[in-house]
Amino acid sequence: MFVHTVYTPPILDDRMKLVLGGRYTRDDKEGVLYRVSNTPRDFRFELSESRFDPVATASYDLTPTVNVYATYATGYRAGGANSRSLTYTPFESEEVESRELGLKALLMDRINLNLAVYDMDRTNTQIEFTLVAPDPITGNTRNTVETVNAPGTSKIRGVEFDVSGRLTQNLRASFAYAYTDTSVPPALNPFPATPNCPACGTVQPVYIIYTPEHAASLSLDYTWPLSFADLRLHLDGNFATGTQSFEQSDQRTQDSLIFNARASLADWQVAPGQRITLSVWSRNLLNEDHMYRRSTEHRSGTNAIGDYANFNEPRMFGAEISLRY
């Protein structure tokens, strides 16, 4: 159930708005893990909880085209149990409390500017631990995953900025940048200690995965009207610094910079009421390669399946034809 209301104090002449809302949620879950390593088991869990998460935003129009705002909100991610576990041990819900300050502006009637600074406190952060080890009942080696809640408060804070607009009659451009800083309290590795896993059973550092510290994107769109159609050119680039790809390892992936391009002959009227668009495109135009997922054999003593990496897709080309009628 969700409620939402907007209030404008009369004394501020519609320049300020207070937005209040909230969501009531009830979760009821139950599960049975009846087979592990192809042998019968009888692992069960039940979860029942309800909560109310509020949201409040105060916004103020500095001018007709410049607005500032502040937002407070809470939220959560439900708990459960991991089906790849050997024990089916339940984990609790993850809760977040967030605060954000921002600005939205339209400059010179053609440039859109957005800026936001945010801070999030997350408790009961859900962390996955992985171990390749024998099942204690069957002896079969398998990749096992246990999900636990990290103690204390995880911190996520950052800045987001984007600007877009028309530079000329035919050219549009946009640019976006995000800085993100994360920290999670060390968590207890739930697996029992063994000679092959010295980190098991100990408290160790953990990380929020696939969250680059720096990320940026740029796009350009040019339209050139012809006598019978529009020539449309598009180019975009996306950059991100390396980040952890496993929650229990500080090993980072590589930085990435990918360009994509498209050229289209658009809205060509080939018959009454029928228009055709012809396009050619390239993904990863410069054929850049980077590791977007990385594991090491010594990954926090998990006895993983070796030192390996996954790479992004190579340069690709394509062509498209679309018909509207």
Rank of each mutant, 00 (worst) to 15 (best):
T5K: 09
L113E: 04
L323T: 10
A178D: 03
I137H: 09
N196A: 14
S183I: 04
Q254M: 06
D230K: 11
N310A: 09
G139V: 08
I137M: 09
F43E: 12
T182Q: 04
E95T: 04
V159M: 13
A78S: 10
H214E: 12
F129D: 01
T39C: 00
M1A: 14
L101Y: 10
W268Y: 14
P314S: 04
Y222M: 03
R84P: 02
R99A: 11
R110V: 00
A229N: 11
G273L: 02
D255E: 13
Y24M: 14
F161G: 07
Q251P: 02
V96L: 10
L188G: 08
T89K: 11
F91A: 01
I11F: 14
D230H: 07
V280R: 02
R283T: 12
Y24E: 11
I156N: 04
V132S: 09
P151C: 08
R299W: 05
T65C: 00
M108H: 02
N114A: 10
S282L: 00
N303A: 14
T147P: 03
R172K: 09
P134Q: 05
T223C: 01
P205L: 13
T130L: 07
R26H: 10
P54F: 06
T168I: 01
D14F: 00
D14E: 15
E288D: 13
E100W: 00
Q244N: 13
A266W: 03
A81C: 06
M120A: 10
E46T: 13
Y69W: 14
G318E: 05
T89A: 14
E128T: 13
D119V: 02
F317T: 01
S50L: 01
R99N: 08
T194V: 07
G273Q: 02
G165H: 04
E247L: 00
V148G: 04
S245V: 11
Q274I: 15
F228H: 03
T123F: 00
T74R: 10
L86W: 11
G80A: 06
A229S: 13
T153K: 14
P192W: 02
N287T: 03
G31Y: 01
E100N: 02
V96P: 01
A105M: 07
S154P: 05
Q204C: 02
S37T: 10
P136H: 08
P10M: 12
R315Q: 15
N310S: 12
N260G: 02
L220A: 13
P198T: 05
Y292E: 02
R35I: 04
F317H: 09
M16G: 06
T130N: 12
V148M: 05
D289V: 10
G152T: 01
M291Y: 05
Y34N: 15
F317G: 05
S59K: 12
V148C: 04
F2Y: 11
Y7N: 03
E146R: 07
P151T: 09
S219K: 01
L33A: 06
Y207S: 05
Y69Q: 11
I11P: 06
V96G: 03
V206A: 03
N287H: 00
N303V: 01
Y88G: 08
L115I: 13
M316K: 11
D289Q: 15
L20V: 15
G21E: 09
P195Q: 09
L167W: 07
Y60F: 14
H234G: 10
